[in-house]
């Protein structure tokens, strides 16, 4: 909610921010209701992890299914919750699940690489399958199977949303700390 954005009342980023703030605060409330005082360090870590996931999930749900990255995030969150629902809450199993998902991610990337029909292209277009782009694919959720054009698009949107998210979270932290 920087003052510069106040005049543009119909700015989509403002809308996104507001919705995100709503959802995120709600999720935080849910967290707080359940667990009021995690004094253990381990618990704090888990809690921060949960807050992070809640933030991502809130952002993704605000963006909706029109974006690939939000779809990927939501899918991941849903899978996570489903798995955890089945597996109760055992930490080791969650770790297993996590590693599994990361393996899946890598596998996807490698599949994409293998699928490339023209191996010469790789040399011709250094941008396309460069290490940087692979890095970017790992950073942006759900970007493993995109072409580079979509990747740029998704990255732009993702950056926008992340920036909004960070801003809202900063204001939240400010409010929590000052009062």
């Amino acid at each position: 909610m920087s003052p510069s954005q106040q005049p543009s009342s119909h700015n989509p980023t403002c809308l996104i921010k507001n919705r995100f703030a709503h959802r995120f605060v709600r999720a935080l409330n849910n967290l707080n209701i359940k667990n009021r005082s995690p004094h253990d360090e381990n618990q704090i870590y888990r809690r921060s992890h949960r807050v992070k996931i809640a933030a991502y999930a809130a952002m993704a749900s605000v963006v909706g299914s029109k974006r690939a990255w939000s779809r990927a995030v939501l899918w991941k969150v849903r899978n996570r919750s489903r798995n955890q629902g089945l597996l109760v809450s055992s930490r080791r199993k969650r770790v297993d699940c996590k590693s599994k998902t990361s393996n899946d991610h890598h596998a996807k990337v490698s599949v994409v690489r293998r699928r490339n029909p023209n191996p010469k292209r790789e040399d011709l277009d250094p941008f396309r399958y460069s290490g940087q782009e692979l890095k970017l694919r790992k950073l942006v959720p759900g970007a493993a199977t995109m072409d580079s054009c979509c990747l740029m698009d998704e990255t732009a949107d993702y950056i926008k949303c992340l920036a909004a998210q960070v801003e809202v979270m900063k204001t939240l932290v400010d409010f929590y700390t000052t009062t």
């Binding site: 935080l28 967290l31 707080n32 667990n35 009021r36 005082s37 995690p38 704090i44 809690r47 921060s48 992890h49 949960r50 807050v51 992070k52 809640a54 933030a55 991502y56 950073l139 950056i159 992340l162 920036a163 998210q165 960070v166 979270m169 900063k170 939240l172 932290v173 929590y176 700390t177 009062t179």
Partner: peptide, 19 residues
């Protein structure tokens, strides 16, 4: 940005319970 989100969530996690 992702790191910032992580950091902020950590902060929120630590700050939240008291308030």
């Amino acid at each position: 940005l992702q790191k910032q989100v992580e950091f902020l969530s950590m902060k929120l996690a630590t700050v939240n319970p008291e308030l």
